[in-house]
Design a protein around this nucleic acid. Structure first.
Length: 570
RNA sequence: GGCGUUAUAGCUCAGUUGGUUAGAGCGAACGACUCAUAAUCGUUAGGUCCCAGGUUCAAGUCCCGGUAACGCCA
């Protein structure tokens, strides 16, 4: 038994995430966490909402609420949806927590003490009326390119030209409408990532078993152009972690906050503290401090490819640069993007399926299976309603669901609702047991390696093996000539159900639970020994024929959903 | 405009450090079975691995050029 720390990239607070966000981090992290727990490992699986920054302020303003209140509400909404998707976080924290505030400020102080923070002066737009500096998105004006009057500070929505806010003709504040804007000098903190370059380079080079997607992105940022650049870690906003040097004031940094990308990954650590403070655990140090036992922990991070630079370079800069005994990540599993019907999922345009909508139309297991079995591991992957319908109907309804249905109903009609006793296993049964032993071993190997598509493929083959066995042995024919032999065949086939449930639970936890309930098995137990696991249900053990595990998706449903999710979010 | 990614069967995707007849699932055709959610099981067909060069005994795999699609950035 080992200890595994697992974190998923933390989703941003402003709104409900779509399936592309889900499949890129939280869902595969959950699969891995569930699998490791099932194998008897000690797991701490953490996630949180990423709450700071301008988009949160804008979303709160749009909702007409104070930003803290807005974030609190959205956190609860996201936590609820995550739970309904079966995401088994040990704690779902918040980057705006007091724990994260303290920790972020402490890290900044350490980095400054280590000489890894520079103070630099920059010119930025200031609004005397609002009494604050304005980030790009808080400035609007006339586009210098096309004359559009409501161009934003970062981009003109009319001609799509990318802009700098000072280029705008007659710029105004979007907060107050004030037009008396001026350029003022302001001081910011830069994290000297360039000074960490060689250490990071060696570290990344040592990770020969990491996915190519992860290391290639890291190396590109390390070596492209002038190499790894220093990064501003402060912003002129009010919503965020106030810039302080530990417990002390930071002269010249009054009214500023840390940049969201500085404090967000630190939340991985703070989240473990929140977990303890919430009374769910007793010791976070043994997970995060190498001087408190965390050297024994294997730490795995899950994220989409857009997050890789921050997790391979920025956050490690913070950890390494502190020269304190913090746990560094052992393995970074990164994913490509999921596309939607020939284009991108789009939060702003409401294109694609969002987590809440997904659960309105189908149970979580349908989505979990499809997304996890085709997770974008090596390239971007395309979601289409047609393939979703075909894949889910085939795998879940026809192969797995129908297997459970056919064997329980056949047993009920010929032997009653209990495992039949007569007969004994012959060569065909031994061959099936041997095949499954081999396949389960392969399945475990793939899961251990976090090769998720291959693992799903093996699991599908394990399901199909039951159908192949029944088809070849045909107990419905055997029964006419040799009822005892048919009884033995049925006994083995019934025993496949709890085996399948236990193996499948990381992918489809709800259906797995239903299968075990129908077979009157109380606990999930991983089949470490397949022959023993296939003797779990003794002769005479009662069961029920379960409800249809997976109803099929009809063409009408598919067409209706395809239309509903094509354009704007309803 | 700059940078990057991708290009393999009708569809969605695998193809490990270059090494024998290029794989899977779905879809299609045909057959078997009739216990089951008209489900299952088997067999078969289908590919100039985008185009054009190059390196090599050997290229889907490496290099150069082109084309196309997509993405990112200022």
């Amino acid at each position: 038994m080992a200890r595994h720390l697992i974190t998923s990239a933390i989703p941003y607070i402003n709104g409900i995430k779509h399936l592309g966000n889900l499949v890129g981090s939280q869902l595969p992290a959950d699969l891995y966490a569930r699998y490791l727990r099932a194998r008897g490992h000690e797991v701490l699986f953490l996630c949180a909402t990423d709450e700071h920054g301008t988009p949160a302020e804008l979303a709160a303003a749009k909702a007409g609420k104070p930003v803290a209140e807005y974030c609190g509400e959205m956190h609860d909404v996201q936590a609820d949806i995550a739970a309904r998707f079966g995401l088994s976080f040990d704690h779902f924290g918040r980057s705006s927590s007091p724990q994260n505030r303290r920790l972020t400020q402490a890290f900044a102080a350490r980095l400054a003490d280590e000489g890894l923070i520079d103070e630099v002066e920059q010119q930025q737009i200031y609004s005397p009326t609002d009494g604050r500096f304005l980030p790009d998105r808080y400035v609007e004006g006339t586009c210098p390119n096309c004359g559009f009057e409501d161009a934003r500070g970062d981009q003109c929505d009319n001609c799509t030209k990318q802009l700098d806010p000072e280029e705008l003709v007659s710029p105004r504040s979007t907060i107050s409408g004030a037009t008396d804007l001026e350029m003022r000098a302001t001081k910011h903190l830069m994290l000297r990532q360039s000074a960490m370059k060689d250490r990071l380079d060696q570290w990344i080079d040592s990770k020969v078993d990491w996915p190519v997607l992860t290391t290639s992105i890291a190396k590109k940022w390390l070596h492209d152009g002038d190499g790894l650049q220093d990064r501003g870690i402060t912003r002129d906003l009010s919503w965020g972690v106030p810039v302080r040097r530990g417990d002390a004031e930071w002269p010249g940094m009054e009214g500023k906050v840390f940049y969201v990308w500085f404090d967000a990954p630190i939340e991985y650590i703070a989240c473990a503290q929140e977990w303890v403070d919430a009374g769910k655990g007793s010791d976070w140090g043994r997970w995060w401090r190498t001087d408190q036992g965390a050297d024994d922990v294997r730490y795995t991070q899950f994220m989409g490819k857009d997050n890789v630079p921050f997790h391979t370079l920025s956050f490690p800069s913070t950890i390494m640069g502190s020269n304190e005994p913090w746990k560094l990540v052992d393995y970074i599993k990164s994913f490509n993007f999921l596309n939607y019907e020939g284009g991108q999922f789009s939060t702003s345009r409401g294109r694609g399926v969002f987590m809440d909508q997904a659960l309105e139309i189908l149970p979580a297991d349908y989505w979990r299976w499809w997304l996890l079995s085709r997770v974008p591991e090596t390239s971007d992957v395309e979601f289409t309603w047609e393939t979703f319908q075909v894949d889910v109907n085939k795998d879940l309804a026809d192969v797995l669901g129908n297997f459970v249905s056919r064997i329980t109903k056949f047993c009920r009609s010929k032997f009653g609702e209990a495992v039949p006793e007569a007969g004994s296993y012959g060569p065909a049964e031994e061959a099936l047991i041997a095949e499954l032993t081999e396949r389960v071993a392969r399945y475990q190997t793939q899961m251990d390696a976090i090769e998720l598509r291959k693992a799903a493929q093996e699991l599908r083959a394990i399901w199909a093996a039951g159908n192949e066995y029944l088809q070849a042995q045909a107990p419905w024919s055997t029964f006419k000539t040799d009822p005892d032999k048919a009884a033995a065949q049925v006994r083995l086939a019934l025993n496949l159900i709890p085996l399948y449930a236990n193996l499948s639970a990381p992918f489809i936890p709800d259906a797995a639970a239903k299968m075990l309930r129908a077979m009157r098995v109380a606990d999930m137990v991983w089949p470490e020994n397949v022959p023993e696991a296939l003797a779990l249900l003794p002769a005479g053990h009662g069961f029920e024929v379960p409800e249809v595990l997976f109803a099929k998706i009809s063409d009408e449903d598919r067409n209706a959903w395809s239309e509903r999710f094509a354009g704007t979010r309803d």
